[in-house]
Structure formats: C-alpha cells, structure tokens
Design a protein around this nucleic acid. Structure first.
Length: 917
RNA sequence: GCCGGGAUGGCGGAAUCGGUAGACGCAGCGGAUUCAAAAUCCGCCGCCGCAAGGUGUAAGGGUUCGAGUCCCUUUCCCGGCACCA
C-alpha cells in the first residue's frame, strides 16, 4: 500500500559508460599524494565499488549481522520503512525511502541500540489484476516473481535488514490472521454491514476505483460511470474518533503538519441535531427530516432544506415528477470522489414536498441538491443562505429567500456578492425571542427549546466516516463470512481459517472472479450445516498494511496473530514513508493498533512513536506535441540540452534526430511522463554507495529530491577521493604516528590544532544535524572534513609529520564513522584497511572534543545601521564594553559613521556588533 | 472546492534562538598536467558597477538596531480528499 503502483520504467541509462570502468585510479592516486608515494600502483588503490560492496555484503550475510532478537540489556530501536508494493522493480522512491531508513538504523546501532529493521511485501492490490488482464499472467505468479526480483535489488543496495522476518501479505500464513481478527471485530460489533456508494461501470459490470474513473467514464470501457449502492462491510473507526484525535497530542515526534491533517480529517465539531417534522399535507405521512448543524444560532434564517438524490423523500417525490426523476438520475451519474463533487456545479430541483420549521412551524421547501451526499450524516442539510457561502450561491441561483439573522457591520442587507464576513459570528437579529443573543447564547437557547419539543439536541459530530473495506476484486484477502438463508451472516469459525484465495483464476476485468467460482463460494453454514454462500468480496488492501508492523515482531508464529515478542518491539520507534500516506494509511494503522489492543493482542495504542515523511523523487520532463495536441514524452536520457555561457538551459533536442523538444518542467518520476531513472542501472554503473550518497546528499529527507546525473557523478567523485585518501593514510600517514598520542589543544602545534578544531566543528554540526534528520548536511560536513584532511596532508605532513598523523588518524576515523550509515560498504573496507578495527559495525558514534573546539581569539562582524561594514578580532572572553570600544574605533565604523555619534550599540556575543549612528 | 505544505544564484541546497545570505556539491569560466582526450589538481563564480558602492531570499506591505527567518495580503507550484498504493 504505501507505494503507488507499478511504474516500471523502461529506460536506457542516462549515465555515462565510463563511470565504473578502470581508468583513472593509479594516476589519480599518485598525483594527489605524489609527495609521499610516487610509485604506488597496487590494485587496491583503485576504488572498485562492485568488489568492495560484494565483500561487505558477504561479510554481513555470513555473520548474520542484522538478525536481532529481544535483548533486555540494550535500549531497542525499531526502525521501519513503509513496505513496498511488489510492482516489478524498485523505483527511485523506494531507494530513497529505504536509504533514509537504513541510515537511521545504522546510526542507532552505533549509538548502542538493539536495532530491528525488517522488510516485507504489501502484495495484494489492483496492479496484479491489471497485469493479469494485460499479459494473461496469474496475479500470484506475477507477484511472487516481482518479489524475488525486488528482493535481490534491495540486497544489492546493502540495507541492514533482518530478512528472517520477511513477510508477504498475499500468503495464507499472513492473511489468515487478518481473517481471524475480522471475525473477532465482527463479534465485538466493530465490523458491521450496510449499503455503501461505489463507482459502477455499466458496460464492464464492475466496480471501479476512483483512479479508474477518468472524466466520469470507465478507464477501459469508456462508459459513463454511475453511483451504485451495494452492501459492504464497514470497520467502526468512528468508535475511536475521539481517542484518535486526542492522542495526537501524545505524538511529539510526528510532523505537526501530519497531525494537523489528521485532526482536520477526523474533524470533530460540536453542533445541534435538528429534526424538521414532515408537512403532512404535502408528504402524506408522519416523520422528520434530521440535519446536523454547527450553526444552530442561524436556525431562524433557514429558508429551505436540501436532501441527497438517494434520500427517501427524493425518491417519493420523483414517482410523480418525471423531471425530478430525470434530475435524480443525473445526480447519480459521475463518480464518488469528493474532489469531483466539490468542484462540480451546484445544481438542485424542488420536490414540491415541505417540512415544518421546528421552532416557527413555517413550511420550508425540500430541494434535491447534487452536493448533498447520502453517505454523510442523514443525507440532508438545512440551508441558511444569509450566512453560508454555498447556500448563498444556491439560493441566489434559484431565487430562494435569503433571511439575515446575524447582525454584522459588513452585512446590513442581504446583497450579492458573497462576503466572508456574512459567515462570522455576531448577535442575533430577526430571530424573535433570540434577538440580541451572541453565538453561544443563541445555540444554548435554541438547543434547549428544541430539546423541550423533542426536535433536537446538542451532539458532537465527526467528519471521519466508518471505513468501508469490501472490495469486489479478486487479488485481496477473502472476507471470512458465510451467508446463510436461515442464520444470516455467519463468521467463518477459527478451525476453518484461513479462507484460502484460489490462485489459478482467470482475470478478465469484467465482474468479480470469485463470484464466478462455485467451487469457492459454495459451502455449508457453520451454524446449521445447510448449503450457504461464501462472501466473494475481498478486503481493502489498506487492511494488510494496518498491522504488518506488529507482525514483524513475530513473523514466524504459526499459533497466534502476534505473540509476547510484540510487546518488546512495539511501538515502531521510527517510521519512514511518503507524505502521501499522511492521512489514510497512518490513521487506519492507529485505529487498528487500538482495535488489537482492545482484543488483548498488544499493550500499546500508538503504532509509530516517530514519523519521518519523505518527499518525492522528481525529474525533468521533455515532450513533443503530436498531431491532435497529444504529448509524446521523451526520456531525459535521450535529450541533449543547450546552455548559455552561464550554464543556463536555453534549449533541448532529441539526441537521435537533433530536432528540438519542449522542456516540460520538473515532475514526479513516472511512467506516464517517461522521466524515470532506473535505480538498477545506477547501482550497476556506480555502486550502491554512490546511489545512497547521492540520494542522501541531494536534499533533506522531507523535501522533494530532484534527479541529477551530474550530481551522481559528484557523489561518485567524492567516494573516490575518500578511497584515495584512505589508502594514502593506510600506507603512508599511519607510519608517522607517534607511539605516545597527545592530541590536546595545548600540545599540538597551532596549525594542527586548527585542523583538529575544524574537524570537530564539522563533527558537532553533523551530530546535531543527524538529530534533526537533516542528513544532507551530514554529508556536507563529511566533505568539509575530507577537504580539511587533504589540505592538512598537503600543508602539514612534511613539516609536522607526527602531529599531522595524530590529527589525521582521529579525523579520518571520525569521517568513516560519520559516513558509515550512509555509505556502509566503502567505510567497512577502509575501516579495516586503515587499522581502526576489525568491523566498523561495532564502532561507536564519534564524540565531539570540547578541548579541540577551544579558541582564544574570535572574529566579530561590525555593522553600521544594520549593514555589514567590516570586522574586528577580539579575545574570546572580551568584556562587552571593550568590544564596543574596539568596534567604534574600527576603520569601517569610523568611515561609515561619517562623524555622527553612536546613538546605540548592540553587541551580539560571538557574532556581531551593530552601531546605530 | 476543502485540508496540509513549499518558493533562497544557472541548478540541488545551507544559514541551529531574529544576528556575516549563498556553506557543501553540481554546472560554467580560467589555469596546471597531457601528444591529445578522459580523469585529477589549483583558482574564479548572486545581480548591477571600472571602482567606491549599490542591490538581492516568489510579489507587495508591516514589526525591529537588525528579517530568508516573525505578522498581514497576493501569486505560482506540490501532496491528500476516503476504491492508486
């Protein structure tokens, strides 16, 4: 679930051929360090990522390095990246997600945590069925083949994963527990059945997903899609609405933005439920139309009510009104997606029926409106055009009465156009006995009067709706229910679980495959034994992804959904995944964890203690306009760009024919825009470490990442420099190490102390940045450290060999440890080759030395009237008065004060002095 | 439409609490090395200006000694909207 469907990109690599070929190593090496070893030409000198990475991975495999068990002696760190949908091959978004997760996992291991990083497959879903329709491959076969291939790709990237816990949600071993839990939740009343609205394709006779409805038509058949009501199972997530909302406050390590989105999604509102009694003379029978409003204060301004097309009153009125019947049909056309409904033109038609105002008894017309939905609340709303923007537009269009009942400076008369002030709270007018009351006073008084008449009460309402989980599809977890003519809906008993999904089926895209398989649905009622029919719907694939993170704790258990081990590992300490899952997947998982808690399965309520939402991977797009306005998207690898003298891109042309193409802007990598880069070719040519380094360096994790071939080159170049430095260090520098290490600020020569200070300054920044998950600047710090080490090598190695060796020894070991979570393979090799230890996996994260950071003299900026004019050097502990005097006397200050006296001097310690003149 | 984000050189990005804007890298330009190229190394590099200096963080306004950072208004781009995952 977390990852969108298969967009395998068939693309030639955009990367130059020479990347990993054996060219430059020796020459490079001897040139950089020729002062030391002009004649070195050993094979190991050349950085060969494939060999380095294979060796490191074999070492990790043979030592089971990432397999973990519960260990009470260490703090645990459960690091989880959203599991992939096995769509065919990894895309760059996966590589980014798992690299970020791996960096965190390896970092925490260095910090002394017992780290669990598992991996699995979100293996049910529509793409497998689509592939089956297209290529005539059974979904199971397609899925398992994809898993095998993608697993090999993940292994090649060197992620520190405990593969012993691997799971695939499409296996009976996994989904049997989902079915088992379903029957428990059904018995607890947390799952129930009712009608739900779906997109219906009348030609293919099948239910369509929202993404399969394009401009109101089925994507395959092209038929106009209709709304249709069908029976579905629902999970009662609304029973947990209050808890899901209030518990957001207990998640300090979730992004505020995500918590806000969830809060708005749950949408708690306090209001009044109001009954409008039926007008007997027009409707013909007793009853009441129920509405919910947060603006009960405006009740006296209600001038009509509106109901959904599926509402019983609409159906009743349509029987004798062909025009209305036609309008209702029109309302049923189109899809169910909220975005479409919200943007369509608001239309309505009167029914001729009336209801009575609950307080004034005035008759109010009942309208059918296309923006009122049967699925929300009672399928009816009261309309107060004077104080609601949508009602105002509707009333203006159909010339319905508008009655102002809230006084406002902006709103002394009801006139178009709409102003936002019309909806503001104020004191009531034109409301009889309620005149003069403010919002809260009016709501209280009106609710009390309604309650006295039995026509209303205060109520809390949530925007959140119950979760419809029935899908009329094949490739999903079968819903474990049996329908008996006598006993009704009966859950499948435990001993008959799992209800196994048959794997050899024909998928055609018309109807539901399981509903065409008597051998699947014919069964006996578990209660009475008579012939009965098995449910042929499967579950929403969001169900599998709502508990997989708990199953990893005990993936091998055949006797329980989860066992005691789950209470060691849960909750997930760090969850990493795309921002696109900010609401649905995360909210469902929070709900599911609570439902499992209430079934006595886990102790925790929240599944994910900390959340990191990564940005998308985007790339440049290019296209040509074809006849008829259609765009032909061209892969960036096949395009050559022209630049002006500053390097700005001015034009682009297709390499093969030399003719111009249109530059289409930067968009999310996708098959449809043909702008994907295949991670495999990247790894093949540059190695996993370069791929990981580029991805981490190019942008902070939560921002979008723009693809850049030359950026990849830069990452590769940096690793070659690290490699070359490491081998010069191992063979030359190390020999100069003194037997007694000093490494103190007061014993090192000043130049060496400066280098050491610089290294520790960068280390401090890197450690800080790691804490805030800003890994791109951790890489910057590593680059700065290497720059400093190389410069020290050049400037110091000859004159101060012992001091240089000491500083380099410490500095390079810091560099390798900083980089090892990001580029673990090269660091593994160099750590060993440079004699820092047998295995960098057991190394600790480096500590900043405060002694190394000490400074006697510092530089302060001098500003005059807020503008930078110069700088002064002062003692690190200089008094404020001395700093002021020095600044005022400085050449820069004198020049720009132009003889004016200083009105004020602001000293910011350690930073600057600002003179106001 | 509603909810949530974002915008800084030619490009990706940095600036930790309101205190040196542009770290680090890419691209570009100049030089060294090379028969030559690749690779590598050294230097320059926001914009205007010969310079002094001016100006500059999507646009406009405000607060402050001082604003990329805080407040208000606007524009554009992206994510989600309940059956894509």
């Amino acid at each position: 679930m977390p990852f969108f469907c298969p967009r395998p990109t068939e693309r030639r690599s955009s990367l130059p051929e020479h990347a990993c070929t054996a060219v430059a190593g020796f020459a490079v090496y001897s040139r950089v360090f020729n002062a030391f070893s002009p004649t070195r030409t050993l094979m190991q000198d050349k950085y060969q990522p494939a060999a380095v990475e294979t060796a490191a991975q074999q070492h990790w495999d043979s030592t089971d390095a990432f397999r973990v068990t519960e260990d009470a002696s260490k703090p645990k760190y459960y690091c989880l990246s959203m599991f992939p949908y096995p769509s065919g091959k990894l895309h760059m978004g996966h590589v980014r997600n798992y690299t970020i997760g791996d960096v965190l996992a390896r970092f925490h291991r260095m910090k002394g945590f017992n780290v669990l990083q598992p991996m699995g497959w979100d293996a049910f879903g529509m793409p497998a069925e689509n592939a089956a329709i297209q290529n005539n491959v059974p979904p199971a076969k397609w899925t398992y083949a994809n898993i095998e291939y993608m697993k090999a790709q993940l292994k090649r990237l060197g992620f520190a994963i405990d593969w012993s816990r691997e799971l695939a949600t499409c296996t009976p071993e996994y989904y049997r527990w989902e079915q088992w839990l379903f029957t428990r939740l059904f018995e607890k009343g947390l799952i129930y059945k009712r009608l739900g609205t779906v997109n219906w394709d009348p030609v293919d006779e099948t239910v369509l997903a929202n993404e399969q409805v394009i401009d109101g038509r089925g994507w395959r058949s092209g038929a106009l899609v209709e709304k249709r009501e069908i029976p579905m199972y629902y999970m009662k997530i609304t029973a947990y609405a209050d808890e899901l909302l209030s518990a957001l406050d207990d998640l300090p390590n979730w992004p505020e933005q995500v918590k806000l989105m969830q809060k708005n999604w749950i949408g708690r509102s306090e209001g009044v439920e109001i009954s409008f009694p039926y007008d007997l003379s027009s409707i013909g029978h007793e009853g009441a139309l129920k509405v919910f409003t947060t603006r009960a204060d405006t009740l006296m301004g209600a001038t009509y009510v509106a109901v959904a097309a599926e509402h019983p009153l609409a159906t009743q009125a349509a029987t004798s009104n062909p025009a209305l019947a036609e309008f209702i049909e029109e309302c049923k056309r189109g899809g169910v997606a909220e975005a479409d409904i919200a943007t369509m033109e608001k239309k309505g038609m009167p029914t001729g029926l009336k209801v009575r105002h609950p307080l004034s008894d005035e008759p109010l017309e009942v309208w059918v409106a296309n923006y009122v939905l049967m699925g929300y609340g009672e399928g009816a709303v009261m309309a107060v055009p004077a104080h609601d923007e949508r009602d105002f537009a509707f009333a203006t269009k159909y010339e319905l009465p508008i009655r102002m009942v809230v006084g406002s400076d902006a709103y002394t008369d009801t006139v178009a156009p709409w102003q936002d002030a019309y909806a503001e709270y104020g004191h009531l007018v034109n409301s009889g006995k309620y005149d003069g009351l403010d919002f809260q006073g009016a709501v209280d008084a009106i609710a009390a009067d309604l309650a006295a008449k039995g026509l209303g009460a205060k109520r809390v309402q949530y925007r959140l709706r119950d979760w419809g989980i029935s899908r009329q599809r094949y490739w999903g977890c079968p819903i474990p229910m049996i329908h008996c003519a006598d006993c009704g809906d009966v859950p499948v008993p435990d001993e008959q679980l799992p209800v196994v999904l048959p794997e050899n089926v024909e998928v055609t895209g018309r109807g539901s495959p399981l509903a065409k398989m008597p051998e699947f649905y014919e069964c006996a009622c578990p209660k009475c034994g008579k012939p009965a029919k098995r449910e042929t719907d499967t579950m929403d694939t969001f169900v599998e992804s709502s508990w997989y993170f708990l199953r990893y704790a005990c993936a091998d258990s055949t006797s329980a959904m989860v066992d005691e081990r789950v209470n060691y590992w849960a909750p997930v300490d760090q969850y990493i995944g795309g921002i696109e899952h900010a609401i649905l997947h995360l909210l469902y998982s929070r709900f599911f964890t609570r439902a499992m808690r209430d079934c006595g399965l886990v102790n925790v309520s929240e599944p994910f203690s900390a959340l990191l939402t990564q940005g998308m991977v985007v790339a440049e797009t290019y296209y040509r306009e074809l006849d008829g306005g259609k765009k032909q998207w061209i892969n960036p690898a096949d395009v050559v760009v022209e630049r002006d003298e500053r390097g700005r891109i001015v034009a682009a042309k297709l390499e093969s024919d030399g003719l111009p193409v249109v530059i289409g802007g930067t968009e999310k990598m996708s098959k449809s825009k043909n702008n994907g880069v295949d991670p495999q070719s990247l790894v093949d040519q540059y190695g996993a470490d370069t791929a990981r380094l580029f991805i981490i360096f190019a942008a902070p994790p939560d921002q979008q990442l723009e693809w850049s071939d030359s950026g990849v080159e830069g990452a590769s170049r940096f690793l070659r420099r690290v490699w070359n430095y490491g081998h010069a260090f191992a063979s030359e520098t190390r020999a100069a190490l003194p037997s007694e290490r000093k490494l103190a600020a007061n014993t090192l020569p000043a130049a060496a102390a400066d280098v050491r200070r610089e290294i520790h300054t960068h280390l401090k920044q890197a450690s800080y940045d790691f804490g805030k998950h800003q890994f791109n600047t951790v890489v910057s710090a590593a680059m700065k450290i290497l720059n400093a080490l190389e410069k020290a090598h050049k400037d110091l190695a000859g004159s101060e060999p012992a001091a240089h060796a000491e500083v380099a020894d410490e500095g390079f070991s810091i560099l390798l440890r900083l980089l090892s979570p990001i580029t673990p393979h090269i660091c593994h090799a160099l750590w060993k080759d440079c004699g820092f230890g047998a295995d960098i996996l057991v190394a600790q994260w480096p500590e900043v030395s405060e002694d190394a950071l000490k400074q006697d003299e510092i530089e302060l900026m001098v500003q005059v009237n807020g503008k930078l004019r110069g700088s002064i050097k002062v003692a690190a502990d200089a008094a404020k008065a001395d700093i002021e005097a020095l600044a005022l006397a400085s050449e820069a200050a004198q020049k720009f004060m132009e003889g004016r006296p200083a009105k004020k001097v602001v000293v910011v310690p350690g930073r600057l002095v600002n003179i106001v003149a």
